[in-house]
Simulated assay, not measured.
Amino acid sequence: MDMWTKQLGWVALLLSTVTSFTISAQEVVASKVQSELPHTVIRLPNVHPGRDAVYAYAKTLLAESLRVTKAQYGTFELLVSDQETAQERQLRSLEHNMLDVTWSVTSKERERQFLPIRIPIMAGLFGKRALFVKAGDTRLKGVETLQDLQAFRAVLGYDWPDTKIFRANDIPVLETTYRASFRIVSEGFADMFPRSVMEIHEEAQDDTLSRDLVIDQNLIIAYPSPIFFFVSSDNQALANRITEGLLTLFETGKFQALLVANANFKQGMSLIEERTVIGIENPFLSEQSRLALEKFLPEFSASKPLEDFEATEMAVPVQVEKQ
Rank of each mutant, 00 (worst) to 15 (best):
M1G: 04
D2A: 01
W4C: 02
K6S: 04
T22A: 05
I23M: 01
A25R: 08
A25Q: 12
V28R: 10
S31I: 03
V33C: 06
S35V: 02
S35K: 07
H39D: 00
I42D: 00
N46D: 03
V47N: 12
P49Q: 06
P49R: 05
G50W: 02
Y55C: 11
Y55V: 05
Y55A: 13
Y57H: 07
K59Q: 13
T60R: 15
L66V: 02
A71N: 06
Q72N: 14
Y73Q: 11
F76K: 00
E77G: 01
L79R: 14
Q87A: 14
Q87S: 10
L91S: 00
S93W: 01
M98C: 10
M98Y: 02
T102R: 09
W103A: 07
T106L: 07
T106S: 12
K108L: 06
I117G: 00
M122R: 12
M122V: 15
A123C: 09
G124Q: 03
K128C: 04
R129Y: 10
K141S: 15
V143M: 05
T145L: 09
L146D: 15
Q147Y: 10
L149I: 12
F152E: 12
F152W: 07
A154G: 04
V155S: 02
T163R: 04
K164W: 09
I171R: 10
T176M: 00
A180D: 05
A180M: 01
F182P: 02
E187C: 02
E187N: 10
E187P: 04
F189K: 15
D191M: 08
F193W: 01
F193T: 02
P194M: 13
M198N: 09
E199W: 01
A204V: 11
D206Q: 10
R211A: 15
D212A: 10
D212W: 02
I215D: 06
Y223L: 02
P224T: 01
S225V: 04
P226T: 05
V231N: 00
S232D: 06
D234L: 10
L238H: 01
R241M: 03
R241S: 04
R241A: 03
E244Y: 07
G245R: 07
G245F: 02
L246C: 04
L247T: 05
L247P: 04
T248A: 11
L249K: 04
T252D: 09
K254P: 03
K254L: 11
F255K: 06
L259H: 08
A261I: 14
A263R: 13
K266S: 14
Q267G: 08
Q267H: 13
L271K: 08
E273H: 14
E274F: 12
R275E: 07
T276P: 10
I278A: 07
F284P: 01
L285E: 00
Q288E: 10
Q288D: 07
A302V: 14
S303A: 13
P305L: 06
D308Q: 08
D308Y: 05
E310Q: 13
T312R: 14
T312G: 09
Q319I: 13
V320R: 15
Q323M: 11
